[in-house]
Amino acid sequence: MADMLAGRLHLADRTLRMESVAVPEPAPGQVRIRVEAAGVCLSDVHLIDGTLTPLYLPGDVVTLGHEVAGVVDALGDDVEGWEPGRRVLLQAGERDRRGTVFTRGVDYDGGWAEYAVASEDTVVPIPDDLPFEQACIIPDAVSTPWAAVTDTARTRPGEAVGVWGVGGLGAHAVQLLRLVGAAPVIAVEPLATARDRAVALGADAVLDPADPAFRDAVLELTDGRGLDVAFDFAGVTAVREQALTVLGRRGRLVLAGIAGKPVTIASDSPFNYFQQAVLGHYGSESEHVVQLVSLARQRRLDLSGSVSDVLPLAEAEEAVRRVHTKQGNPIRLILRP
């Protein structure tokens, strides 16, 4: 089989190299897809800079990319129900029988390549009118906040919510919270451009976390009761500390961002009295991706504004630089082979 271009992370020196590698052959139970679009996530940047390290990667080199969409190209033995040419996206990972989660582009080769292989049960069909550039970001960029909103927080209609960080995850959280009927949806962002984006995405109010009147503003927006749910999509210690000061009775703080730092509750007395909770959140389950594809198909979810730019796969290093420096304040950059 011919060779292909792939973005390979070498863990020994934490370098991303664009390399020519063999096109993978699908093993029994696997499907090979021709990649049409792959998202660039902040997690990819953290893998390169050493903030994150694969837990289950058997070697020290991996093709990055856990947000992937394309066309079925070839089938391994014993695969049924799929045919070449079918438009699909790939789940961001898979779980083994013991419950261990293996993440695509982290623990095994991902989609920053011309072709990728996947277990057949991680392949999800997408409608013909859903662009690959939008479909590829549903796993993770959209499904992670969707799972945080619907499962971890169990957000109910009419609940007052705050979203700290309106980047790749938080921007979608604003849309999804409106979809489930949360109100008001308050976006908290230090960047003025990101606050403007939050308004365009449907936030009922936007606040600067550095505003001395921040707590008073939240109480005014919530008729004095405080937030029912606060979402930390920034992964910053100061965010958690601030969010805890504006939680209401039975309020939940959901940690969707990863700070790698201790979580501190200033005083257990009000925390206990108001029966508040801190909830950890990570990723999503396969059904969340399927739900979102259905919502997109039924025109309940518009991801057209999520694609900040599309770059050739060969320019993966430039895409990583732009995400790292937040150049242009992107929601998602997409690589196209």
Rank of each mutant, 00 (worst) to 15 (best):
residue 279 L to K: 09
residue 301 L to K: 05
residue 281 H to S: 09
residue 95 R to E: 11
residue 228 D to M: 11
residue 106 V to W: 01
residue 136 C to L: 06
residue 282 Y to D: 11
residue 74 A to C: 01
residue 171 A to S: 02
residue 27 A to C: 05
residue 116 A to W: 04
residue 183 A to E: 10
residue 192 A to C: 09
residue 10 H to S: 12
residue 135 A to D: 01
residue 17 R to C: 14
residue 301 L to D: 02
residue 152 T to G: 03
residue 187 A to N: 14
residue 38 A to P: 03
residue 264 T to M: 05
residue 29 G to L: 01
residue 60 D to A: 03
residue 301 L to Q: 01
residue 15 T to A: 08
residue 274 F to I: 11
residue 329 N to A: 07
residue 136 C to Y: 07
residue 28 P to Y: 09
residue 77 D to Q: 01
residue 303 L to N: 00
residue 137 I to N: 00
residue 69 A to K: 02
residue 187 A to P: 08
residue 9 L to P: 01
residue 70 G to N: 02
residue 294 S to G: 12
residue 196 D to K: 10
residue 4 M to H: 10
residue 147 A to K: 03
residue 258 I to N: 14
residue 98 R to K: 08
residue 332 R to Y: 02
residue 220 E to P: 12
residue 296 A to W: 12
residue 46 H to L: 03
residue 95 R to N: 11
residue 301 L to Y: 06
residue 37 A to F: 03
residue 241 E to N: 09
residue 64 L to W: 05
residue 149 V to R: 14
residue 150 T to L: 12
residue 157 P to V: 08
residue 126 I to E: 07
residue 87 R to F: 09
residue 320 V to I: 15
residue 319 A to Q: 00
residue 248 G to Q: 13
residue 43 S to A: 06
residue 80 E to R: 15
residue 18 M to D: 03
residue 179 L to W: 06
residue 280 G to R: 00
residue 294 S to A: 12
residue 288 H to Q: 08
residue 106 V to E: 02
residue 6 A to I: 13
residue 113 A to D: 04
residue 323 V to W: 07
residue 226 G to M: 06
residue 160 A to C: 08
residue 320 V to W: 13
residue 329 N to D: 11
residue 129 D to L: 08
residue 268 D to G: 13
residue 220 E to H: 10
residue 183 A to R: 15
residue 166 V to F: 08
residue 39 G to V: 11
residue 88 V to L: 15
residue 123 V to Y: 00
residue 336 R to I: 11
residue 46 H to G: 00
residue 201 L to P: 12
residue 23 V to L: 08
residue 50 G to K: 02
residue 270 P to N: 06
residue 44 D to Y: 06
residue 77 D to W: 05
residue 92 A to W: 09
residue 325 T to P: 05
residue 186 I to D: 04
residue 219 L to K: 07
residue 196 D to V: 08
residue 240 R to M: 11
residue 8 R to M: 05
residue 110 G to S: 00
residue 130 L to N: 06
residue 61 V to W: 15
residue 264 T to E: 05
residue 144 T to V: 04
residue 291 Q to V: 06
residue 145 P to S: 00
residue 320 V to P: 15
residue 299 R to A: 13
residue 323 V to I: 07
residue 112 W to K: 02
residue 169 L to G: 05
residue 130 L to Q: 06
residue 318 E to C: 15
residue 120 E to F: 05
residue 272 N to A: 12
residue 121 D to T: 02
residue 36 E to F: 15
residue 109 D to V: 03
residue 258 I to W: 07
residue 149 V to N: 15
residue 130 L to W: 09
residue 103 T to K: 11
residue 256 A to Y: 08
residue 183 A to Q: 09
residue 147 A to H: 06
residue 23 V to R: 10
residue 273 Y to V: 15
residue 135 A to R: 02
residue 256 A to T: 11
residue 193 T to Q: 13
residue 294 S to R: 14
residue 227 L to F: 04
residue 249 R to D: 15
residue 27 A to P: 04
residue 105 G to H: 06
residue 103 T to D: 10
residue 87 R to Y: 10
residue 322 R to D: 05
residue 277 A to R: 14
residue 83 E to M: 10
residue 43 S to W: 10
residue 325 T to A: 11
residue 255 L to S: 07
residue 265 I to Q: 12
residue 335 L to E: 02
